[in-house]
Design a protein around this nucleic acid. Structure first.
Lengths: 101, 101
DNA sequence: TATTCATATGAACCTATAAACATATGAAAA
DNA sequence: TTTTCATATGTTTATAGGTTCATATGAATA
C-alpha cells in the first residue's frame, strides 16, 4: 500500500531535522533491521523508535516488511542517499571551517 | 567570511523543515531580494524574516551582500536546487497517491 | 553628526513536537 | 486458545523552536 501523504516539502524534511531519525537512517543505511535490533544498537527505547519509524514510513523514507514476529525496516536508499551526498558536498564546499562530527 | 557552522545533518535540515523558510527559499529561487522585499512579497513581518534568514545563513543556504542601505539575500542554488529536484522525484515515485500542493 | 531608512538582535511568550510510560494489538509457537 | 515475543498506539508531560514586540545597530544622506 503506497498511498502515503507527503503533503509538503517541510513535512518531508522534518524527518531529517531530527537527530534520532538521522540515527535511524544512518543505521538502516548499513543494514535493514527490526525495531528491537535498532533499539539495542542505538540504545533507544522501543516505543520511541516505533513513533519515529511511523513518521519515516509516512513519507516513504523507509519501507517495512513482516518477517515472522519481527518487522524489518529498510531504507529508501533511492531518495536518501543522493540527499546525503549533496549535504556532504555542501559541507565541504561551504562549511570548510566548521566542526564536522 | 565563510566559517559558519553546520554541525550536523539535522541542523541543516531544520531550515528545510519549516514552511516560512521554504517560502523564503522559493522566493529567492526566483530572484535575490532584500528583507523588505521579502516582507512585502510574502506578507511576513520583518523581524520574523531576519530571524529565519539568520538561520539560513548559518548553514550557508543563503548568501547576503550589502547594497546601499539594503542587504540583498540570494539562494545557494548549488546546494538547494538538487535537493528540491530529488524531493520532487521522490513524491512522484513514492507518493503517487498523495495530495500534492 | 543628526536623522532616516533598513535590518538585526534580545527576551518573553506560546505552540508544536518529542520523550516517557502505560497499554493495546498482532503474529507465531506451545 | 493461551502464552510469549515483537511492535504499535494513546496520553501526558517536558522542551525546543517559532512568534511577537521592543529595541539596538548599521549604512547612507541631509
Amino acid at each position: 500500500m503506497k498511498n502515503v501523504h507527503c503533503d509538503n516539502y517541510h513535512i518531508f524534511f522534518k524527518n531529517l531535522a531530527n537527530p534520532l531519525k538521522i540515527g535511524i537512517i544512518a543505521s538502516l543505511k548499513e543494514k535493514p533491521s527490526s525495531v528491537n535490533e535498532l533499539s539495542e544498537k542505538l540504545g533507544v527505547e522501543q516505543s520511541k523508535l516505533s513513533h519515529s519509524l511511523a513518521n519515516l514510513r509516512f513519507c516513504s523514507l523507509v519501507n517495512s516488511k513482516q518477517v515472522g514476529k519481527k518487522r524489518v525496516y529498510s531504507l529508501n536508499k533511492k531518495t536518501i542517499l543522493p540527499i546525503l551526498r549533496i549535504i556532504d558536498k555542501h559541507r565541504q564546499a561551504d562549511c570548510a571551517g566548521c566542526k564536522l562530527k
